[in-house]
Simulated scan of single mutants.
Amino acid sequence: MKTAFVTGATAGIGEATVRGLAANGWRCVATGRRKERLDALVSELGEDKVHPAVFDVRDNTAMDEALEALPKDFRGIDLLVNNAGLAQGLSPAQDADLDDWQTMIDTNVTAMVRLTRKLLPGLIERKGAIVTIGSVAGSYVYPGGNVYAGSKAFANHFTLALRADLHGTGVRVTSIEPGMVETEFTKVRTGSQEASDDLYRGADPMTGEDIANTILWIAELPSHLNINRLELMPVSQDFAGFRVART
């Protein structure tokens, strides 16, 4: 039985990924800050399928302690899913809160890099796989995206650079770059459920399950195949054109 390490597993894409992998014979280390949600996953899927690792990815000491505390059956990681991430504020850069920017950098960039580096030796030994959830925001910027878009551009390109560095190791590396996905993340990003509902009203966006199914497909491809990067959008979404401010 193979084992996946899924960050941000308390909701949305991460939670759906744990469910999808577990249903297809994988063990999962499910991480997140909300213990009650991880415990609910264990109750639903079984402690033989899910190990809850409760920590904030920004806390390097807590991350190390969680890795040290992994049970024997969950120590051999075959798949790392770098899913944990957040967006705070939609303000123009000149009005943005520096604390919001720092939180996004600490979560979307620093924590992802640290965890990936910590798990790399085992992933190389087991010829495993890394899937990072980037975003189309890393390629197509938008007003107010500033640091979020920058952090996702980093995630996208860091993942492609990993692919180059791991050449010859047998480790597969994929950058998944979704567009509109309706999850709890949207409520946090926009600041309210009402704003989240307005953003996606009538748009028929993707779901966490859509992305989780994509991760499962990639994870179970033959070992000689690698998906380098995969950009997904709902049919209703397109990338924006240029804008011109006229005087």
Rank of each mutant, 00 (worst) to 15 (best):
G14H: 00
E15W: 01
E15C: 07
T17K: 00
V18K: 01
L21I: 08
G25V: 12
G25W: 09
R27M: 07
R27Q: 12
V29Q: 06
V29S: 07
T31P: 02
G32E: 01
R34S: 13
R34K: 12
K35W: 03
E36M: 10
E36N: 15
E36D: 15
D39V: 11
A40L: 13
L41M: 11
L41W: 04
L41C: 05
E44A: 15
L45G: 05
L45W: 07
G46C: 04
E47W: 04
E47Q: 15
V50T: 11
V50W: 08
V50N: 05
H51T: 13
P52A: 09
P52H: 04
F55L: 04
F55Q: 02
D56H: 02
D56K: 07
V57L: 14
V57A: 08
D59S: 10
N60F: 15
T61H: 09
A62K: 13
A62C: 08
M63R: 13
D64A: 14
D64N: 10
E65C: 05
A66Q: 01
L67E: 07
E68K: 15
A69T: 09
L70Y: 07
P71H: 09
D73T: 13
F74I: 08
G76C: 10
I77R: 02
D78G: 13
L79F: 06
L79S: 06
V81N: 02
V81Q: 06
V81I: 15
V81M: 08
A84M: 01
L86F: 03
A87R: 14
A87Y: 03
Q88H: 12
Q88G: 10
